[in-house]
Design a binder for these strands. Structure first.
Length: 287
DNA sequence: AGAGCTACCTGAAGGC
DNA sequence: TGCCTTCAGGTAGCTC
């Protein structure tokens, strides 16, 4: 489900409830998500105060008063439910979903002063995962070592992008999905960014250097910023913290639009499969 | 070393 | 209506 924009929307929704709160209890419905949870997971969390809620690529990272950080990845279908009061729209994060015993895997009890909140992690496909790592060595942790620059940060530059693409003999679309090239771009926004950059997804990555990399750099940033501003993309059931649905999907230029006319030139949008994932593009606009 | 495939797991949607 | 197949926003780990 979530790529960088959706994870960022979730982060913004959860942060007010999580930052500064204390974890008073952690309940595990099963010993693993996609991977086994780390040894003593609940015990290492209980009693800790959450300092902040950060994002790195598609990961959420919560540094704790214990010196460890809670690392969370939503996989394809992970979602958080905050509170326990009223149903809202179905979503990745919403207040008070009905209990789902089959897929509510982790339940955090939070306390801020005398206010208590429940945060539930639900994940039908169970591709998501959680981990703990020393907060001071996060960059070296197995999840973040080798991860590329944050696309909205200063470390992501046209020259840097050009340099990493230069050595890659893989289709440009596949390179964009590689989290070591740039963090947080997934299948939707890879197609969308390539359309904006007018670059073919089939083009060899090594050929997208110089001015082309410059265009791609700008396109990646623009599409991610706009998607965040739109509250993310709601394909099935993603929603923000207040239950609001993202609406960026209405602005897709090519994603999931195979057979429909290109919004720029009118030619039919094409679909192909690269590295096992669907790619959408306009063969007239993108070269 | 780098690139490409498969596995992982469940639910939704489409075809018949 | 129901059964079957296909597809889905993720990453890790295996092959070549």
């Amino acid at each position: 489900m979530p790529e960088l924009p959706e994870v960022e929307i979730v982060r913004r929704g959860l942060e007010p409830a999580m930052a500064g709160a204390r974890l008073t209890a952690v309940a595990l419905r099963r010993p693993d998500l996609r991977f086994p949870l780390p040894e003593g997971f609940a015990a290492r969390l209980e009693g800790a105060r959450i300092e902040r809620l950060d994002r790195r690529g598609k990961y959420l990272v919560a540094p704790l008063s214990t010196g460890e950080a809670l690392i969370m990845h939503l996989g394809m279908s992970g979602r958080f439910t905050l509170g326990g009061a009223r149903p809202a729209a179905a979503g990745a994060l919403y207040f008070a979903a009905p209990p789902d015993p089959r897929h509510d895997h982790v339940v955090f009890e939070l306390a801020s002063g005398r206010r208590k909140t429940r945060l539930t992690y639900n994940d039908p496909r169970r591709f998501g995962f959680m981990d703990l790592a020393p907060a001071s060595e996060l960059d070296a942790s197995r999840h973040f070592a080798g991860m590329g620059p944050e696309p909205l940060g200063d470390d992501f530059t046209p020259a840097g992008l050009s340099a990493v693409l230069a050595g890659r003999r893989t289709p440009l679309k596949s390179a964009l999905l590689d989290q070591s090239v740039v963090a947080g771009v997934g299948n939707i926004y890879a197609s969308e960014a390539l359309f904006r950059a007018r670059l073919s997804p089939r083009r060899l990555a090594a050929s997208a250097v110089g001015a082309r990399a410059h265009r791609l750099h700008g396109a990646v940033r623009a599409v991610l910023v706009e998607a965040i501003e739109a509250g993310g993309s709601t394909l099935r059931d993603f929603a923000g913290s207040d239950g609001a649905l993202g609406y960026f999907q209405h602005r897709f230029a090519v994603y999931d639009r195979a057979g429909e006319p290109c919004r720029v030139c009118g030619k039919t949008v094409s679909r192909l499969v690269q590295s096992g994932r669907a790619t959408f593009y306009c063969s007239a606009c993108q070269r």
